[in-house]
Design a protein around this nucleic acid. Structure first.
Length: 267
DNA sequence: CGGGGCTCCTGTGCGC
DNA sequence: TGCGCACAGGAGCCCC
């Protein structure tokens, strides 16, 4: 599932490929993915727009056009792959260089929008801080946790709390911090809060360094897998031995989602 | 404010 | 062996 490191990897790839090219045409195989504006209007307005840059906010990929922005949310199974025409692609953008930007999406949860200003999107206005930006400091993080009574794992996955963290990186950050996923925030000791702050940043940076984790369908902009999956210590490893203490990795539900953790290392 | 449950969708994998 | 169903998950939404 694409989270911040996966989307950032795609962004960096596309930033090298797209700027300067013009969107000549769009082929729409799954109209439901186009959320805004209507499909006809989308087709009409996207044509002949020049690509100026590629940005990211949280898990949202933002392609800056000569007028307006094309935003893509990959959700669970979305892929943005640059290359030849792909007949399986749900949406295919034909570019002036002759190549295609293919949007694949097995489960059709993805969301594509053409908007005047991405900053006005409700999901953006609600979105919490970027965890890898300099202004996301320990002081900021402490302040954000103050007065909260929720369990830590669903909170980390809440995009309004922190942008870009999903199930996988939340699980790994909590493992590295020795914090049980069902712990309530108000029971965290100062030392644990500090560990968590450092490991959120650490695990996300490492995810980017290894070009993301291809547990399921994630691929980079060239269609290649990331390398981070083999470095996962708890996510998807139920029943396997903990790399630190050899206890068996457990799985519980928090906020309706699977949470993998080591029952011995995480309290 | 918090938490649970449902919804969208479809390939995978388990149980019978 | 083969079928059918539960499950997975990001995020919005409803409800208590």
């Amino acid at each position: 599932m694409p989270e911040l490191p996966e989307v950032e990897t795609i962004r960096r790839d596309l930033e090298k490929l797209l700027p300067g090219q013009i969107i000549k045409d769009v082929e729409i195989g799954a109209a439901k993915l186009i959320k805004e504006p209507g499909v006809r209007e989308f087709k009409r307005r996207i044509k002949n727009k020049k690509i100026k840059g590629v940005r990211r906010r949280g898990k949202l990929l933002i392609i800056e056009l000569s007028a307006g922005f094309l935003t893509c949310h990959l959700k669970l199974t979305g892929q943005l792959i640059y290359g030849e025409k792909d007949n399986k692609a749900k949406i295919g953008f034909l570019l002036s260089g002759g190549k295609y930007l293919n949007f694949n999406d097995l489960r059709l949860f993805g969301e594509i929008r053409l908007v005047d200003d991405w900053r006005n999107l409700l999901q953006i206005r609600r979105m919490g801080p970027e965890p890898l930006e300099a202004d996301f400091t320990f002081e900021t993080f402490k302040g954000m946790l103050e007065g909260k009574k929720s369990r830590i794992k669903p909170l980390l996955m809440d995009q309004a709390f922190i942008a870009g963290v999903g199930n996988l990186y939340a699980a790994e950050a909590l493992f590295r911090s020795g914090i049980h996923p069902a712990r309530t925030v108000n029971t965290l000791k100062p030392k644990e809060t500090e560990e968590l702050f450092l490991h959120i940043k650490g695990v996300l940076k490492e995810g980017i360094k290894y070009r993301g984790s291809s547990v399921d369908d994630y691929r980079d902009a060239s269609g290649k897998k990331g390398f981070f999956a083999s470095r996962l210590q708890v996510y998807g490893r139920e029943g396997e031995s903990c790399s630190r203490c050899k206890a068996k990795i457990s799985r519980i539900k928090t906020g309706g989602r699977s949470s993998y953790f080591c029952p011995k290392c995480q309290k």
